[in-house]
Design a protein around this nucleic acid. Structure first.
Lengths: 247, 247
DNA sequence: ATAATAGTGTCTTTAAGACAATATTAC
DNA sequence: GTAATATTGTCTTAAAGACACTATTAT
């Protein structure tokens, strides 16, 4: 308790006790998406700690006040911990907070989603987990039951990603650095769960100005295909018109 | 400290101390927008407490763990406290957390924006404030310097609102229940800071299916104008094409 | 009548959507 | 040659954008 009412801001801050008020538990959770063998996958870890010990969950955890520069840093730290690499895209989705989502009490989680290529990633359970694995997504859901409200969080993250497939170039960030147009369009098909006209998508993607030819070709199948990459300044193009698919 | 490692979830929860970990301070801040005399305004309060005592700030405050059902509830409570009414629209924008934004330590704020008609609102400073007033916005900024990082938060909330003006019917929520098409189009002009073709906007707004005629007219000026209101199921129409204005 | 604001009609442009046709590889 | 996939071309449609025009009030 304060000795007396402080008269200046310096006095106030000197006597301020951050633990005087009840604060919610604050965590960051990340939905890390990739595409493996033509299907969308999300990275899950198997919890080795209470609560929900033994259950699958989104990677996440408490903000580390001494280590994290900001919320994005917490999300990136979690990502690095589990995959050893940086994501091609990381984006905050929403913050959910209430009394019921965590049996430990009033808690709040800042939900992120990340996109990365599954190539060259070695999964690492890290502290507090016994396993880390890619799980196939069907309609924004995953096979096993998830800890906390993570099933709901996952659905929301997927919904955001799916929606952005209708008007941005984001989906390509689940691919490796070089890819063909057909590969890129297929990612859109997977996310929007609908067939898309090839010539239309081709024109649309090229018009974005975000793609550049690498100069080489993908050989091996039938007709070889040009390889593309995202242009450096990858300013994340937003189309003026949405695809009607995936509504 | 725990006596020993718990074996069951129930044991774990019984011995769990939420204050064992350092948690960030968690607040909710709300940018409440309206249009008064053809200009966009935001509701600010003058702080009567440290830190930033005497400075203008966005209405907001700590989550009340005993009272708030969720983060949206915290935002609605703040809104009610200052205006006495409910907002026509309330939406979460983003969560910002870092060590530098609050001199009291690592803190996190969940930013919301709200839209309401200024009509029939009596402003109320409420606890912790000496004044509450509408401040005119110019380019997402307000005259007086703001407490904390609120100038940045305000800019971000405004950017979100401006962006949504390009592809949603949201802007109308700053109007009273009944309005003319010209009034509605003018809100878009104010938000996008650009002139808009009247016939084009008229067709666009009517095609949304979100408007219904009230049956009465606004008289008084020159030619009377039909009055409209948002149709009940106001499912928040999203246009498939964006306006080019305001890019 | 004129001024002022509300509201309609029509043309152009752009990009999505549909689909036919051609090109390049492997076999 | 055929199969398979990559790539190009052309037509339709819908809505934005531009702008001319008509309608209804007040004075």
């Amino acid at each position: 308790m304060m000795a007396q009412t402080p008269q200046t801001e310096a006095e106030f801050l000197a006597s301020y006790d951050p633990k005087a008020f009840d604060a919610p538990l604050a965590t960051v959770d990340v939905s890390i998406f990739t595409v493996i063998e033509g299907a969308l996958h999300v990275l899950l870890i198997k919890r080795d700690e209470f609560p929900f010990k033994g259950a699958w969950a989104l990677p996440g955890g408490f903000v580390d006040l001494s280590q994290d520069n900001g919320l994005d840093a917490t999300a990136m730290r979690k990502l690095q911990e589990k995959t050893g690499v940086e994501a091609s895209h990381l984006e905050q989705v929403q913050t959910i907070g209430n009394l019921s989502r965590d049996p430990r009490g009033w808690s709040l989680t800042v939900l992120y989603f990340a996109l990365m290529s599954a190539e060259s990633v070695t999964l690492n359970p890290g502290a507090g987990a016994t396993e880390a694995a890619w799980h196939k997504l069907k309609g924004g859901q995953v096979e096993p039951p998830l800890a906390f409200d993570h099933a709901k969080l996952l659905k929301r993250a997927f919904a955001r990603l799916q929606n952005k497939a209708r008007y941005t170039m984001l989906p390509g960030y689940v691919l490796a650095e070089e890819f063909t147009l057909t590969e890129l369009i297929n990612i859109y098909r997977i996310l929007l769960e609908e067939d898309l006209d090839n010539p239309m998508m081709r024109r649309r993607l090229l018009r974005s100005g975000m793609l550049e030819e690498t100069g080489s070709m993908r050989e091996g199948g039938n007709r070889p295909a040009k390889l593309y990459r995202y242009a450096r300044a990858a300013s994340n193009h937003v189309f003026d018109r949405n695809l009607e698919a995936g509504k």
